[in-house]
Amino acid sequence: MQAIITVVGQDKVGIVAGVSSKLAAMHINILDISQTIMEGSFTMMLLGGLPEDADFKAVQQALTDFGTQQDLTIRIQRQEIFDAMSSL
């Protein structure tokens, strides 16, 4: 299963390192990644490959908890919804 993970928050040292370590620990493979500063906020988007047997809810909870610790908003959504909205 592929999912889009977005990370938004105040820019600081180590966000990419922290998030990618967390993903690696959950065996989530980063397939694509981009990062920018938008309206003063650090914004990162990445496409992650989840293991076949991954428990989506548990992954989501772990990322939310990690986000709260780090003062970041982290969302994870299955990738198909982004295509469905705007592609024919």
Binding site: T6, S34, L47, R75, F82, M85
Partner: peptide, 13 residues
């Protein structure tokens, strides 16, 4: 991965 599409969708929601 089309960034604008992702940003637009998240903003709408």
């Amino acid at each position: 991965m089309e960034q604008q599409k992702i940003i637009d969708t998240i903003q709408m929601i």
